[in-house]
């Protein structure tokens, strides 16, 4: 019996200590980690979508509430004076989630550009969604009334040959971005000013 209590006590104390220690480290590194994610994943995508802005989309980022899930929005003032926003959505590809940063011009309701942020697709095949600009450029300038599904499914997007699933993931993410934007536009515009 004593042995039993001993075992339980040691394990409990150890786990509690471990939890406490980790919570401390987590709290200490939280801000730094957020900065790193911004710098290495989001910043290059934002830079690609808004090559020239008169403001700093990264510094002016804000959060809005999308049905209980917080969504990070990057506002950009384009060089021709129009306003745009960029945010990230996800679609499921063949190796898992494909993150897509979607830039939308708020004044004209058209897509500025899209960029793939994260993916774990097969190198050389699905990864072309990120590396090969001709696929992503299909989205540029399209109005938000476009259906971004594959052409085979009655949409307007050409799939990359040999990488149908990845192409689908990107189009799912783009359609999702469209829906979120249409739903939350008043909120986004309010926050931007």
């Amino acid at each position: 019996m004593r042995e039993m209590i001993n075992m339980v006590v040691v394990l409990t104390v150890l786990t509690a200590l471990s939890g406490g220690l980790l919570a401390t480290v987590k709290a200490k590194t939280e801000v730094q980690i957020e900065n790193q994610v911004l710098k290495f994943q989001k910043a290059p995508a934002i830079k690609g979508i808004f090559p020239e802005t008169t403001n700093d989309p990264l510094a002016e980022r804000f959060m809005i509430d999308n049905e209980g899930v917080p969504l990070q929005v990057f506002p950009g003032k384009l060089s021709d004076g129009s306003k745009a926003v960029a945010f990230e959505t996800k679609g499921t590809g063949f190796g898992g989630a494909v993150g897509l940063m979607v830039g939308i011009n708020v004044d004209t309701d058209t897509i500025v550009e899209v960029r793939v942020t994260t993916h774990s697709e097969t190198p050389g095949i699905g990864s072309r969604a990120k590396d090969d600009p001709s696929f992503a450029s299909q989205f540029s300038g399209k109005g938000l009334d476009t259906n971004f599904s594959m052409k085979a499914d009655g949409g307007a997007v050409d799939a990359m040959s040999g990488a149908t699933v990845t192409s689908k993931a990107v189009s799912v993410a783009a359609n999702q971005a469209k829906e979120i934007y249409q739903k939350l536009k008043p909120e986004i515009v309010k926050q931007m000013n």
């Binding site: 980790l22 987590k26 590194t29 730094q32 290495f40």
Partner: peptide, 14 residues
């Protein structure tokens, strides 16, 4: 391991 994971995420993200 979790400490290493957090530290690497914070300082050597790539």
């Amino acid at each position: 391991v979790t400490i290493v994971e957090l530290l690497m995420q914070a300082y050597t993200y790539e």
